[in-house]
Design a protein around this nucleic acid. Structure first.
Ligand SMILES: [Mn+2]
Ligand SMILES: [Mn+2]
Ligand SMILES: [Zn+2]
Ligand SMILES: [Zn+2]
Lengths: 144, 144
DNA sequence: ATAGTTATGATACCTGGTATCAGTGAGACG
DNA sequence: CGTCTCACTGATACCAGGTATCATAACTAT
């Protein structure tokens, strides 16, 4: 869980300017729990212009401060990233997100590259389901 | 590669009405080669209303006549489907799409379900890369 | 032919994101 | 410090892709 300070130092190191707007966006992002949309950030950093929020989110994505979470309906959310490359398991009922420890398809990528002569440079992988607690409340509701 | 006739029969069997607009959209879809956007279909079925084209695409997706192809930038394309559930390898340079024979994560889904107590009901998996021919033309360009 | 339901499409609207560009201020350097 | 410069900002307008509404049309079972 990165701190505001360390994110700022990372930006500095890469010759990005530290502006009040950027700091506000980063603070808003770090304050989120779970996954969030750009609108959520906008709401918490009202003084910052819409375009700047989007620009800053791209920056944070490029720096791997946040990771993108693709929801089942195709909408894009973000999440403060703890590790490097990884994937998600999203509860479609409560929205809870599990980070999956390792990239499950790294081996497959190698196989595919050999089999297809493609040079593979990326992939999307997200899982959707119902977490244990959502399932049990569903079961209760069915009985009632 | 389904025929117009067989798609129509499938709709009839499920009590959907056969209308000129639907037929026009289906014909336009079946005429596409490779993957295509809804706009592509709209362009080839000008007489059909925008909303109806979107509605029909959803129908065709639900019936597994077409599959959805998620591009690297997050935009959603479609493709006439040859099989049931499968995934794609997309060339980010020329747009060529390879259907992958089997679902590479089916086993993983079972493992995840056991490990996390989630009931897993879906996933997104798409690969991006450069096909052999795009790589070789890239190499030529670099030399020149 | 009629009825009853389904489908249509014009329109307005919405979400999420980008292009533009005049104005500002961060920070390097003296 | 002062000042120069360039990266950054944010208002605005715009765009893409998709949905809600609802009066009208038309498919199909009878
Ligand atoms: Mn993550
Ligand atoms: Mn496919
Ligand atoms: Zn849940
Ligand atoms: Zn290619």
């Amino acid at each position: 869980m990165p701190e505001l300070e360390s994110v700022i130092r990372k930006l500095e190191a890469l010759d990005h300017r530290i502006t009040p707007s950027r700091v506000a966006v980063i603070a808003a992002v770090l304050a989120q729990s779970g996954h969030f949309s750009v609108e959520d950030v906008l709401r918490q950093a009202r003084a910052v212009g819409r375009a700047t929020v989007f620009r800053t989110m791209r920056l944070l994505t490029d720096l791997e401060i946040v990771c993108r979470v693709l929801l089942e309906d195709g909408s894009l959310h973000y999440r403060v990233s703890r590790r490097g490359h990884h994937h998600h398991l999203v509860c479609v009922s409560c929205g809870n997100v599990q980070d999956l420890d390792e990239c499950a398809v790294a081996g497959l990528v190698r196989e595919l590259a050999a089999a297809t002569e493609y040079e593979i440079e990326g992939h999307w992988l997200e899982f959707y389901g119902r977490c244990a607690s959502c399932r049990s409340s569903l079961a209760l509701a069915a009985k009632a």
